[in-house]
Design a protein around this nucleic acid. Structure first.
Lengths: 232, 232
DNA sequence: CGCAGCCTTGACAAATGTCAACAAACGTGG
DNA sequence: CCACGTTTGTTGACATTTGTCAAGGCTGCG
């Protein structure tokens, strides 16, 4: 692991407050590896041997059952995934694959659990991280159960717009195919939903999104902080 | 709080390992209250002032948006809810109401956070609890995205059967109206899904469920530990 | 008894998925 | 740089799933 990577990991909320000796202990058994696109990093059901940290690139968390599959989330730098499986010493509930060329840090799960027992700050950081992830899934579940597909698309676009700085033209940095899966619909359905939003002040061309009538789309989407805010 | 209630709370995984002085400190500001059925205990968006513990009865966690609402989970004794909001000092993402006459212990959130900073065992227990809840929502989300309504009903019945001891006749202790909401469908649709399962070895009469062909229903439902097991 | 709420059923509407065709974008190897 | 094949996105026609509305039966309770 390079010095710059070392300090990048160190700056993560999860590790920032922990004792230096403990952090070094964690990193001793860790290593960083580069992966090409479309590599399956972990498969659901496998035992959790490593906590993963995405340093560069992007990782798709997905799951499948009975021949179907769906994308649950996208992990972008710098953040961790499968923390819950690691602290519970339980099997992964989701599979993960690289979406692009990615650098991933792998920290032995056993070390995470050991240091977690020794370092109160680390334990607190893990609680904060878990609670955040937990609340994020709850929001996502609320969206799935309370909104139909067109409403989900509209609110997704508003979230992306905010992430991109709030300007009326922005890029949804996501393949439509994957977006459809994340939002729980088929690509064809997404295509039609997007077309249907033209009457509500949004035009999409490729990955370029143009909000022609901010008021109209917000009025249609009815975004709600308890579903759409990342912060809380 | 009565002595028996005090020790019931003490025995919860969340509190079992913590220092006695810390536990007493937590309980000092706590109180237990009885509520009639259908009382709204908390409303989503409110600030988290108390960690709630269901001592008796049952509590429905639900959420609403734009005139629709849906039931997210049922909390039964003895367990806590809205732990994530408490540790994050964030607004509730869900509302809660009693389903029946219930006794609820209320522990000031500020105390929970303070003791959590002082007691490593408590912090660890919170991590375990949060990770479990987190994984439970992930499973529920997987079910929503990967299974259609009839499959969700079939797998729900198999889970209930297991909870009830695996016998071919058991009770699904849940109003159908609420079950429909939990499974993300309308009551009418649930009614039809149940009827459709008769061809797969299950008959439901009221809340009494009879599995007439265990093999057939399992073959149809295809239960999966990474979705349906409570343990992992 | 009579009311209220829940469950069921039927008819219908709306949302969503499936399949097939084709166009556009992309990447690779010549 | 082009040609080719592969993938992605779009569209139409259609099937399936799910929701909506209205009506009626049943149950529990005052």
């Amino acid at each position: 692991m390079s010095d710059s990577e070392f300090s990048e990991v160190r700056r993560l909320d999860l590790f920032a407050g922990m004792d230096d000796a403990h952090f070094r202990a964690l990193m001793r058994g860790a290593y960083v590896q580069s992966f090409p696109p479309q590599i399956e990093l972990i498969a659901e059901g496998e035992h959790s041997d490593f906590l993963h940290v995405v340093m560069a690139g992007a990782v798709d968390l997905f799951t499948s059952w009975n021949g179907r599959d769906t994308s649950m989330a996208t992990v972008r730098p710098i953040s961790t995934f499968i923390l819950a499986a690691t602290v519970r010493d339980a099997p992964y509930l989701m599979s993960a694959r690289t979406m692009e060329k990615s650098r991933i840090a792998l920290i032995p799960s056993a070390d995470v659990r050991a240091v977690f027992d020794a370092d109160g700050n680390f334990a607190r950081a893990i609680v904060a991280e878990l609670a955040t992830c937990y609340r994020s899934v709850v929001k996502s579940q609320k969206e799935l159960k309370l909104r139909n597909s067109r409403e989900r698309v509209a609110n997704f676009l508003l979230r992306q717009q905010r992430r991109a700085g709030g300007k009326p033209v922005f890029d949804m940095d996501l393949e439509k195919r994957r977006l459809a899966s994340v939002l729980g619909m088929t690509p064809e359905n997404l295509s039609r939903a997007i077309k249907g939003l033209r009457g509500h002040g949004v035009v999409v061309d490729g990955t370029r999104v143009t909000v022609t009538d901010q008021n109209a789309i917000e009025c249609f989407a009815k975004p709600n902080p308890l579903i759409d805010d990342l912060a809380t």
